[in-house]
Simulated scan of single mutants.
Amino acid sequence: MLQDSTDAQLLELGSEGVALTMALWDERTCVELLERTMRAATEAGNLRVLDTTLWVLGLVELARGDPAASGRYVEQVRELRRAIGYDAEQVVNASSLAWSGAPYEQVEQIAEATLETGFAGVWTVAMTGLAIREIADGHYRDAYERLRPLVELEFLQVTYQQLPDLVEAAVRSGNLAPARAAAHRLAEFAAVSGTPWIRGIAARAAALVSEPERAEAGYLEAIAQLGLATATGELGRAHLLYGEWLRRMKRRREARDELRTACEIFERVSAPAFAARAHRELEATGERVVAHQPGDGGAEHLTPQEDAVARLAAAGRTNAEIGAELFISANTVDYHLRKVFRKLGITSRRQLAERHPAS
């Protein structure tokens, strides 16, 4: 089993275990193996494997629906490349940009430039990110047309990760037959793999294509299963869809609870388009919503580098340990921490641990 591999074996495998674990919809094991590989590569000074592992971790975080975590890994790649003398400004994750609210045209230009250099897989991830953004913005037909050719290509690791998004885009754009077909495939995956992630996603898809009398059970199952998984953004989307369904069923009080939860999750993972959608739905229930603004005392306005330093410091790491992990000097760590303290209005690491949990 991959989990029984030694550190030396993991360094030899690099990120090869990603294909197998993601094929099984086992995001928890995938991240655990990548984090072990990252630590082993750091200890061994294997910068090539470390660079690749950090980049892949950023992609996996997007699959889990957490662009904030993805951004932290991208920043670590930048710091690593600065440390070894490469141009760190060229480190751009187009899919992460799409999640984070960058203009569509900018993301498409970056994705096309990547495709021209031969990285078709990175282009596919970028197209997926754009489709997810289109779903968040309510452009369901555009998302469906963007996802459809990706799903029709019979390549295992390039296709079925897009199926959950295809279901929502297809249902909301009136393409019920392909939505039901995709939901059926997800149910088959759930029957074989059985991880909380795929069970939750399959239940959410089933709810979207179900009649009203059966939909609620699917949404509740999705929330229960995804609550056991580590796919934070996917859980937020389940709460959002259930809240939207409840509002349309005229159950506004219950809808507010789900939509508030969705808002909190999307703000925490820095998914502004989904947060805006959840806010709009919440306002439609009659609740007055005060949107979060950067700089109002929350952790969301920290830069990716400040956030990474804050998380490690909150976990009890020393400046030297943080510097070694992020490839910056202890003095630079101290500089970032002072900025974090000022932004959060705190004066100690103890307060940081309470205000900005390492988890």
Rank of each mutant, 00 (worst) to 15 (best):
V333C: 08
A203M: 06
R204D: 11
V171N: 06
R252Q: 15
I135S: 04
D4V: 08
I265W: 00
T159H: 08
R268P: 13
N175V: 13
G58M: 06
V290A: 07
L220N: 07
Q76M: 06
G58L: 06
L176V: 08
W123L: 11
R180W: 10
R81M: 01
F189A: 15
S270E: 13
A19K: 08
T42Q: 14
G286K: 02
R28G: 13
T195N: 09
S329E: 06
G345C: 00
G218P: 02
K250Y: 14
P304T: 01
I201L: 14
Q162C: 15
C263S: 12
A299G: 07
G101W: 00
V340P: 06
Q109F: 13
R199I: 14
Q305G: 08
L312H: 02
M1N: 11
D7M: 07
A299Y: 05
F266Q: 07
E79W: 00
E321D: 03
R342E: 14
A271D: 11
T318D: 02
A313H: 03
Q9T: 10
S95W: 00
G323C: 02
L47N: 10
R180A: 14
E188F: 09
E354G: 04
E154S: 11
E75Y: 00
A358M: 03
T285M: 02
G233M: 07
R185F: 14
P272E: 05
C263I: 14
A68R: 02
A23L: 13
R28P: 11
V290H: 07
A88G: 03
S270V: 11
D165Y: 15
A182M: 12
I84M: 05
A191G: 13
R338Y: 08
H356Y: 08
A136P: 05
R72M: 09
Q157S: 13
V77I: 01
T261A: 12
F274S: 07
R349I: 03
G194S: 08
A177T: 11
R251F: 14
T332Q: 11
R280G: 09
E264H: 07
E75T: 01
R28C: 13
R280F: 04
R172W: 11
Y335H: 14
I135Q: 03
A275R: 11
A358K: 01
E89V: 04
M127R: 03
A314G: 02
L241S: 15
K250A: 15
E152V: 10
A170W: 03
G118Y: 00
G200T: 08
E283I: 11
